[in-house]
């Protein structure tokens, strides 16, 4: 019996280490999940005179995608976002995070397709701070009442969409019925 104790300790510690092995330390769960989306007021990428606020997003289940042209991973996920915008009825909004070259950003969307209803111009990154953004790209799932339901840090693709986003969206839609 006594000789089992070291073995038991070994398995407990190995268990913790084994689970830790498959956890990505760069993924920090957001305290904003379950809370209302922070309020903001800004212009958009294509129209410096227009003002958009969180009220323009609230109303139906939507995605908010943090992107910029200086962010290579954002360019990598771009075709998948365009496909989502075409193949689903979920509106996608952009948060153009500390854009260094707006002209390039606009021509990028013209050439590669624009999945966004509009892109919020977050020039100084203040809106992103309120959203707890720490690594672009990030994608928020926001419900019809404006509550953040999920946050993805890193690129979006079909597999992630099917695995992480769709089940929550289906649950939200069932609850709304």
């Amino acid at each position: 019996m006594k000789s089992l104790i070291p073995a038991l300790l070994f398995f407990i510690i190995s268990g913790f280490l084994f689970v830790g092995l498959y956890k990505d330390p760069s993924l920090v769960s957001s305290p904003l999940v379950g809370k209302s989306m922070p309020s903001f007021s800004a212009s958009t990428l294509f129209d410096a005179h227009k003002t958009v606020t969180e009220a323009d997003i609230i109303g139906e289940i939507a995605l908010l995608n943090v992107w910029a042209t200086w962010c290579p991973a954002c360019k990598q996920e771009h075709p998948d976002l365009v496909a989502l915008a075409i193949n689903t009825d979920i509106p996608i909004y952009g948060l153009n995070y500390k854009e260094t070259d707006k002209t390039e950003a606009r021509s990028w969307l013209r050439d590669e397709g624009n999945p966004y209803v509009f892109s919020i111009a977050d020039d100084d990154g203040r809106i992103a701070i309120d959203f707890g953004v720490y690594g672009a790209p990030e994608t928020f799932l926001i419900d019809a009442k404006g509550v953040i339901r999920y946050k993805r840090v890193g690129v979006m693709n079909d597999k992630i969409w099917q695995r992480d986003f769709l089940p929550i969206i289906q649950r939200l839609r069932r609850e709304a019925l």
């Binding site: 920090v28 769960s29 957001s30 305290p31 904003l32 701070i129 309120d130 959203f131 707890g132």
Partner: peptide, 8 residues
């Protein structure tokens, strides 16, 4: 800070 980025 912790409201936005968590206790981490």
């Amino acid at each position: 800070m912790s409201d936005r980025y968590g206790d981490f």
